[in-house]
Design a protein around this nucleic acid. Sequence first.
DNA 1: AGTTAAATCATCCTTTTGGGTGATGATTTT
DNA 2: AAAATCATCACCCAAAAGGATGATTTAACT
Lengths: 140, 140
Amino acid sequence: MKRTIILYGLALALFVSGLKFLEYRFFVRDLSIEFYISIIVVTFTGLGIWVGLRLTRKKFVFVGGDFKQDANALQRLDITKREYEVLELIAQGLSNKEIADKLFVSLNTIKTHSSNLFLKLEVSRRTQAVQKAKNLRLIP
Amino acid sequence: MKRTIILYGLALALFVSGLKFLEYRFFVRDLSIEFYISIIVVTFTGLGIWVGLRLTRKKFVFVGGDFKQDANALQRLDITKREYEVLELIAQGLSNKEIADKLFVSLNTIKTHSSNLFLKLEVSRRTQAVQKAKNLRLIP
DNA sequence: AGTTAAATCATCCTTTTGGGTGATGATTTT
DNA sequence: AAAATCATCACCCAAAAGGATGATTTAACT
């Protein structure tokens, strides 16, 4: 944005110089004055468009940016690290058995974690858990 | 976009009128010429910014806009209307029984539809189905 | 009229999920 | 050191989900 201001300032300086130049041109009455005005107008229109594009480009990037986790919600719900890990893998579509294998623990452990997780999220099944977790910005 | 073009055309017409006006102003050598040029330049810069904003606003709305279903994927996968309805409700976190009640059919019917759906989506369980359907832009 | 596709339903069976209860060990907090 | 928390695990049971097989009805297409 700083760069935009600097460049626009340069354009303004050019503009002021252009006006001084026109002041000299008045000694020679000439229709080509309109030509210079056209150039200046087109230049500044172009610059305006460019500024407009830059103003929104930042916002555009921001909208399309990376997932930002709501750490407050995570803390408020008192979800432990392990529970969160299980949640992530549930969201990836893994079965309990698959999750147990991936985390090198027993199936019982996963069931325990997911049960506790469901309690904290106040849901009855994994589909609800995933949906709620996305809504609360716990997972992407 | 059409409106942008029309408005910009109007500005151009104003510009041309402005030039003619300047032509008259040459009979009275006056420093206020610079004043008129300034107005014209500022006007067109503003218009340029506006055009720039409009050019990206469309994209911006599109990104932040409502869900747009990929009907091609839906057709390609050969998912029937009823199957899609079941998918939607699965994604909302409903159990098969709940879905059956909502659609006034038997549990068996829902199991049939979801089985067929899973085949078409090439998944093994509802969490995978929901995830894949979102990735394919079948559901929001 | 015959064929096809979609929707509906049933039955059987297996697997998976989820709730409850209880326990132990490790780590963190008081 | 004691208490609390977290992770892990087991067992029991019921509910839910999922796969397979088969059938009927309806609507659309040839």
